[in-house]
Simulated assay, not measured.
Amino acid sequence: MEKALTIGVILPGINESDVQNHLNELDLLLATAGAEVVGRVTQRLSKINTPFFVGKGKAEQIINQAKMLNVNLILFDDELSPAQIKNYHRLADDIKIMDRSGLILDIFQKHAQTREAKTQVDLAFCQYLLPRLTRQWTHLERQMGGIGTRAGMGETQIEIDRRLIRNRISKLKRDLKQIDCERKTQRQRRKNEFRVAMVGYTNAGKSTLFNALTGANVYIQNQLFATLDTTIRQLDLGSSHQALLSDTVGFIRKLPHNLIASFRSTLKEVLESNLILIILDASSSIMDEHLETIREVLCELGASHIPEISVFNKIDLVTNKDLIKRLQRNFPDAVAVSALQHLRLNELKTRILLVMENDY
Rank of each mutant, 00 (worst) to 15 (best):
K268L: 15
R253S: 12
L91Y: 00
A92R: 02
I97V: 14
T248L: 07
Y128Q: 11
S81C: 07
P12E: 07
Y201T: 02
R183P: 02
P131W: 07
L5I: 00
V9I: 15
M153K: 15
I286M: 10
L80K: 03
G55V: 09
Q157K: 13
L267I: 02
I104N: 02
R162V: 10
V38D: 03
P51Q: 13
S284W: 07
I74Q: 00
V199I: 14
R90F: 03
R189T: 12
I95S: 03
I324G: 10
L277K: 08
G302D: 08
H139V: 03
S240I: 06
A261Y: 05
I158R: 03
L209C: 02
F251D: 09
E36C: 08
E141F: 10
H241S: 15
V9T: 13
N211G: 12
R326I: 04
Q341H: 14
Q109V: 04
L176N: 02
A197W: 01
E79S: 09
I158E: 07
R233I: 02
G102S: 14
I279Q: 00
S273A: 15
I62W: 07
L164R: 15
V311W: 00
L30G: 04
V121T: 05
G250I: 05
L291S: 06
L291W: 05
I165K: 08
S240N: 15
G148D: 10
R174M: 11
Y219A: 13
I309D: 06
Q84G: 05
P82M: 05
I85N: 02
L348C: 03
T266A: 11
F263P: 00
M68A: 14
L271M: 10
R162K: 15
D77R: 04
N358P: 00
S81H: 08
I169F: 05
I95R: 02
E60D: 11
L69C: 03
S46E: 11
I158L: 14
N64S: 15
T230G: 04
E116Q: 06
T227P: 00
L343N: 09
G152I: 07
G238T: 03
N203I: 05
R344Q: 12
E141Q: 11
D161Y: 00
D333G: 05
M287T: 08
T231M: 09
L26V: 15
N87R: 01
A117D: 06
T319A: 11
T42S: 00
R142P: 08
G302S: 09
G13K: 12
C181D: 14
G250F: 04
G154N: 12
I179N: 01
N346I: 10
T214S: 02
G250D: 03
T208M: 15
R132T: 07
D122P: 01
R195M: 14
L228M: 00
I309Y: 09
K171P: 06
Y88Q: 06
C299K: 12
F263C: 01
A204E: 01
S207T: 14
D77E: 13
F108A: 09
P51L: 12
R163D: 10
V218H: 08
F263G: 04
S262W: 02
I7H: 07
V249W: 07
A212M: 07
V335G: 08
E25A: 12
S265P: 01
T138D: 06
N346S: 13
L345M: 04
V270D: 04
S170P: 01
T149D: 02
T208Y: 14
L271V: 08
E300P: 03
G152P: 02
E347G: 14
Q242H: 15
